[in-house]
Amino acid sequence: MKLNRIWAMLLKFWYITINRPDRIFDIIYWPVIDLFVWGFASVFIQQVSDVSFLSMFLGGIVLWIFVWRSSQDIAVYVLEDFWGRNLYHQFSSPITLTEHMFSVMLFAFFRSICTFVVLTILAFIMYRFFIFSIAPFIFIAASIAILSLFGWAMGLFVTSLVLRFGQRIQVLAWSSVWIVQPFSCVFYPLSALPTWAVPVAKVLPTTYVFEGLRAIINGNLVNISSLLYSLVLTLIFLVLTSFLIRIAFKHAKSSGLLARGD
């Protein structure tokens, strides 16, 4: 990996972001809507129950950002090159696939952090909710790492499909993360899932993070081994999807998709 090329890509994504207002707007739009809807809903439920709904829901929303942003941004910034028929110049330059994907991941992480900061501040102003006061810093940091890595894996997966099948499946770029969310037990415990869904949930690293968050809110200690297990699962996903994107890239080179870009 060469730093000048990573820098070039970050510069490119930065320019795309500042040149297109929608790219700044979408850093906050949906997350803030979520914060409003779920925040007020949980304030209401909190009044009629003694479970700490507010912390669980808002914690879920704020942390889910990392899966969402990472996976969606990766796919969207790659699709951007498709829409602009720009793969031609991009990949005739010295940049490698690894460098390209790594830069997208970094940039997606940067955008996640922006959203995270905005939401953390808003949640405090609106609901006096501060994520770092409900769980130890180390747990939050580990969760952010795991969720971002998993988001990257999802992003790689979608990008592979786009490279393999072309733009016609681009809707996946926006929707895939919402297929995973219900199984990740972001807002409810694993025990609330129907039995057929439990095995799926158990394969997803995200489940362990949100289960862990709820356990801590309920007064338990950080479960290190379950976090480690989740990390291992994430890494397995990353390795598999990295492998997948290599195959898809090879296919794109052979089918002519890179040269034509449609």
């Binding site: 060469k2 000048n4 090329r5 820098w7 070039a8 890509m9 510069l11 490119k12 320019y15 795309i16 040149n19 297109r20 951007e80 090159d81 602009g84 028929r85 720009n86 031609y88 110049h89 005739s92 330059s93 010295p94 940049i95 870009g261």
Partner: peptide
């Protein structure tokens, strides 16, 4: 390097921004 009239450089970027990005890509 390669040039063609058929594929544009990144369209949402300005002319100068594009040249900067490609300049860094080619070091």
């Amino acid at each position: 390097n390669v040039s063609t009239a058929y594929y544009p450089v990144t369209e949402v970027l300005t002319v100068k921004q594009n040249l900067k990005v490609y300049g860094h890509l080619y070091n």
